[in-house]
Amino acid sequence: MEIVFGTGLSQAIEEIYAQMKKTVSFAGETVRETQSLYSQAEKLGEHFRSRRTSVVNMVNTCREKLISVNNILEFGQERKEYWTGVKERTEKFLVEAEKYLPIIDKVCAILSKECERLNELKASSARKTEEFISIAEVGVKGLLKVKDAVDCYARIPSLGEVK
């Protein structure tokens, strides 16, 4: 009949328990952090999509107005200088906006892809961490039972010494 456990087992189990508690809490924090990062990335994507919409609206307005300005310059006689200035500034805006749109399109596409990826990762990290925590809990419960037994034997030296 062997009931003697090795030396320092009770203390080691306490240390393992403390370490596991720390690790499980870290896992929970990491999952929360992943979720928060995903929310931030999603907000950034929304922000840039709204910037893009705003620029597209300005471009559309400018294109429409440019048609009117060209008509005024072609058929009207008054304030030619003023309308020429408007035409030049409108065209300048359109040139600059057309440089900006492909860049923001690319950024929006990257953000959209990354958000999709982060969304999958968010679910996956929550699932894997939950699994980790549940397996960890089972082991820790078992360890605490072993510790109880060890402590119990330690309190009854005559039994602990039996071999």
Partner: peptide, 20 residues
């Protein structure tokens, strides 16, 4: 790195102790 190092620490603690 936090999860695996946590588990590594547990392995280290366990290794340093005599178990049945």
């Amino acid at each position: 790195g936090g999860l695996t190092s946590g588990v590594d620490n547990i392995i280290r603690i366990k290794k340093g102790t005599d178990w049945k």
